[in-house]
């Protein structure tokens, strides 16, 4: 007789990752209540799928993937996601005036909320958890070149929003971007 799961227990995973997952969920959803819901949901799913986790070292990306899928399900169910177009945002950065002011986390969240999920997720993973381009590509199941391009454009968008550079916000174009990505 043995417990299910390979070599780690769900309680250990909660202990090690609940804070990180909550913050990731918060940045994805923009809501504390939804972030908590998503975190709970992630660990409940992880508990039932624990035997799929063959390598405990990969617990973190595995949990992140579960959380993102849970988030995407919710977004699809609601069929709403506010986002802006990045068509007018270039990949190459503009020179900023130094020194840079601190970024207000609330304004950052507002800017993230306006990004389509396919841009928001890589930028969160990149800055928040320091995932590599390769890790993000694996996580999202897209080529690494796509991730590089999305990150560059998302970063340019955030720079524009947070450093007061004007960025075109057009809902019509946003829908088109979402349909094309």
């Amino acid at each position: 007789m043995r417990w299910p799961g390979p070599s780690c227990k769900i309680e250990e995973l909660v202990e090690a990752h609940y804070g990180t997952l909550y913050r990731y969920a918060f940045r994805l959803s923009g809501s504390a209540a939804e972030a908590e819901d998503l975190t709970q949901d992630t660990f409940c799913q992880a508990q039932s799928k624990l035997r799929q986790l063959r390598e405990p070292d990969k617990a973190r990306p595995w949990l992140f993937a579960i959380l993102r899928n849970a988030y995407l399900h919710r977004v699809r169910d609601r069929k709403i996601e506010n986002s802006v177009s990045l068509d007018c945002v270039g990949d190459l950065p503009d020179r900023l005036h130094e020194p840079l002011p601190e970024i207000d986390p609330v304004r950052l969240q507002e800017a993230l909320d306006d990004l389509p999920e396919v841009f928001r997720t890589p930028v969160i993973l990149f800055y928040f958890e320091e995932f590599s381009y390769r890790d993000i590509a694996d996580q999202m199941g897209v080529p690494i070149g796509t991730i590089m391009s999305r990150l560059a454009r998302a970063k340019a968008f955030l720079r524009g929003r947070l450093m007061q550079t004007p960025v075109l916000i057009d809902d019509r174009l946003a829908r088109r971007v979402e349909e094309n990505v």
Binding site: I10, A32, T39, C44, L100, E130, M163
Partner: peptide, 26 residues
């Protein structure tokens, strides 16, 4: 900019009782 974004990105307070609530829900 990268450093500033990373700092702001991580500035999310975690609810104090979240861990207990997660464990209770398992």
């Amino acid at each position: 900019l990268d450093r500033a974004l990373a700092r702001a990105m991580q500035a999310v307070p975690t609810p104090a009782s979240l861990r207990a609530r997660i464990l209770a829900n398992l």
